[in-house]
Design a protein around this nucleic acid. Structure first.
Lengths: 189, 189
DNA sequence: TTAAACTCTTGACATTTATCAAGAGCCTGG
DNA sequence: CCAGGCTCTTGATAAATGTCAAGAGTTTAA
């Protein structure tokens, strides 16, 4: 399990085995079942999660209790409430396992320490932040500039793994439509 | 005009007058009319803009040519195509003046130089990135979890200046609804 | 193994929002 | 200062999507 993290980090730090060995011991293995919550609104997020296997769903609930998914994260990706984590402020979102998951988590203190001590680690963080921001910008633009059918097509092209693995209900909650509408529109493609 | 930038930077760097004097000379004044474009899709964004006065609209167009605004930026804020700028890749969004604007811009080369040379400048960048990301996350969640009326109320509470200054058409393009729907729903509040 | 709980699909209908059109008011540049 | 072009509003209608309900199939956990 740790091997996968080493691989991931080495790919990004370049071959700096010393750094890898400084970083990896700060991570802790977590095995979580489908439905387990890693974060709830109001809590302060204390960890960044690296996903070795499985899928995490980041979502909010509306005034009627319906879930809206902002993002799914799968193998080889990082998930956290970035803003709440960095500023140690209460979260506004849920993070929950959408599949049974194997995770590696790093605590806030360790994360800060590594960011200060290892410039390459800090650079990885900046890169993750920039890519996350870019994805979210894209997401706003698809939500406001595409109709439901085009969003479904977009997702099939750009998130085929997620589309294939998760339930219609979850996918619909990501697309901002009801599960019934998803069923009906899919038959039109 | 430069004074306002000095103020802005000093507030964030703390009182480090030496740093301020290293940073400020890299900025160049730009006066732009309403409707002037600062960036179009396909172009590589070469500048970060600091807004001294006015308003910038960041938007995309859909397959029918309708505009969808991702964000408005006003006085004392920074605007750019962050991802395209950092990676010097073609933009996917437009940036246009929604009002006559007084801007200060810094070129990519200078920006990189300052980021490398001055840790506090780098820290400001990281902070802007985190806040931008957080805002965009919030924006996704309001778009997917609120109906049009609640989004209007949200905007009146959270973006009163923009709501007051810009045309219905622009505000509607931010809310993801037509200008007619905005008119009708506003009368229900 | 089996009952309960979920999931997907489909139908009927309601609701929300868009589109098209027209008129009144108001900027705004030549 | 005035004509053309925006902007806002309102009405009529259309289109997109949601909600509720029911049945068949599938998974899950005791």
């Amino acid at each position: 399990m740790i091997e996968i993290l080493k691989q991931h980090i080495t790919n990004r730090l370049g071959k700096l085995p010393d750094n890898v060995d400084l970083v990896v011991p700060h991570f802790e293995e977590v095995i979580a079942k489908r439905g387990d919550f890693l974060l709830q609104p109001g809590e302060v997020c204390k960890y960044v999660y690296f996903i070795v296997e499985g899928c995490l769903q980041v979502f909010v609930t509306d005034k009627n209790g319906n879930e809206s998914t902002r993002e799914f994260y799968i193998e080889d990706q990082w998930a956290t409430d970035i803003f709440g984590f960095q500023n140690q402020l209460p979260a506004t979102e849920f993070i929950r396992c959408a599949e049974p998951s194997k995770l590696l988590r790093i605590h806030f203190e360790s994360f800060q320490q590594l960011t200060n001590a290892i410039p390459q680690f800090s650079a990885i963080y900046k890169q993750i932040l920039e890519v996350s921001y870019n994805n979210t910008v894209y997401r706003v633009n698809t939500l406001t500039s595409m109709d439901a059918l085009d969003r479904i097509k977009w997702m099939m092209e750009n998130k085929p793994k997620i589309m294939a693995r998760l339930s219609s209900k979850l996918i619909a909650s990501y697309l901002g439509i009801s599960a019934e509408t998803l069923t009906r529109l899919k038959s039109k493609i």
